[in-house]
Simulated scan of single mutants.
Amino acid sequence: MIQPLSDTELVIFDCDGVLVDSEPISAAVLIAELARLGLTITPDYVRDQCLGRSFPTVARGIRAAFDIALPEDFEQRYRSALLARFATELRPTAGVGAVLDRLRPAKCVATSSSPQRVARSLEIAGLAPVFGADVFTASQVARGKPAPDLFLFAAERMRADPARTLVIEDSRPGVEAAEAAGMQVLVFTGGGHRPVPPPGVGSFDNWRDFPQVLLTADEG
C-alpha cells in the first residue's frame, strides 16, 4: 500500500523535462534530422510518441509508423547534434536547485536517456554533484518506461521501499511506470514543452509548489 507523502523516503526525478528543460531542444533536433531524410513529423507526434521513451523505442516507432529505414548512423547523428545544442542552450528548470538543496528524503535520477546524455545534461546544468552516482538509466533494465523496471531498480539500489517512494515525471509513460511500481507520482508541467498530466494525477508547474512536507525549513 502506498504510504502518506510525509513518509516518503526516496524521491526519484526524471531528467528531461523535469530537472533540465531539454524537451523542446530534443524535439527540434529530431524533427530537423528526420527532415534531412525527407520525413516530416510534428511537435505533436514527438509529444505523443516520443516523450519519456528511450531512443531505440522512439526509432522503432518511427520505422513502423512511417515505413522508413533509418540510416545506421542516424542515432549517432541525432545524439551529436543534440549534445551540440545542449552545450549552448540547455538549462535546469527554473527553481529546481532550491528544491534539491532542501529535500529531506534521499534522491536519485531515473531516466530513459542514455548514460552519456544524462551525464552531459546534469553536468551542463550544474546538477551532477547533487546526484553523484545515484543516476539510473533504461540501459540498466530489461524494459524501459512504461514498464516499472527502471523505477523498481532505482528504489532497490537506493534501498528504499517503493511504497514510500515519490516519482517526479513529465510523461505519460513515466507516470504509468511509477504507478505500476506502486509508487506515488507527481507531474511537473513547468518545462518548455508544457506537458499535460494524465487525468487524476497530481501536478505542479512551479518548483515553489513542490510538497513542502518533504523540504527542510527555508532559512532564507
Rank of each mutant, 00 (worst) to 15 (best):
V196H: 12
P197I: 01
A178H: 03
D205C: 09
V196E: 15
A177V: 04
G182M: 04
S203N: 09
H193A: 15
R194P: 01
V187I: 10
S203Y: 03
E176L: 12
G192H: 12
Q184L: 02
D205R: 14
E176W: 02
F204N: 08
V187W: 05
W207S: 07
V185P: 03
F210L: 07
G182Y: 01
R208G: 03
A181K: 11
L186D: 05
N206C: 14
Q184E: 08
P199F: 00
H193S: 15
G191W: 05
L186R: 14
G192A: 13
P211T: 06
P211V: 02
H193E: 15
V185M: 08
P199D: 13
N206Q: 13
P197C: 07
R194M: 03
F188A: 11
D205Y: 03
D209R: 13
E179N: 10
L186Y: 14
F204L: 03
G192N: 08
Q184A: 07
Q184D: 07
T189M: 10
M183Q: 06
V185C: 15
F204I: 01
P199E: 13
G191M: 05
G191C: 14
V187E: 12
V187Q: 12
R194H: 15
G202S: 04
A180V: 05
A178E: 04
A181V: 03
F188G: 08
E176V: 01
G191I: 02
G202T: 00
R194C: 08
G191S: 15
A177K: 06
A181G: 04
M183D: 01
N206V: 10
G191A: 15
W207C: 06
H193Y: 15
P198Y: 04
A178K: 06
H193F: 15
A178T: 03
P199C: 02
M183L: 00
G190R: 10
G200K: 09
V201Y: 02
E176K: 11
T189F: 04
V187A: 10
P198R: 09
P199W: 00
G202P: 01
L186K: 11
E179H: 12
G190Q: 09
W207A: 09
P195H: 11
R208N: 14
E176R: 10
H193L: 15
V185W: 02
V196K: 13
A181Y: 01
G192K: 12
E176M: 13
P195T: 12
G192E: 11
E179W: 01
G200Y: 00
G182T: 01
H193I: 14
A180Y: 00
P198H: 05
G191D: 14
T189D: 09
V187P: 10
P195F: 08
A180P: 08
G202K: 02
P195A: 12
D205M: 07
P211E: 09
N206G: 07
D205Q: 11
G192V: 05
E176F: 00
G202R: 06
F210Y: 08
F188V: 13
M183R: 03
T189R: 07
F188E: 14
P195V: 07
F210N: 06
A178F: 01
A177N: 08
V187H: 09
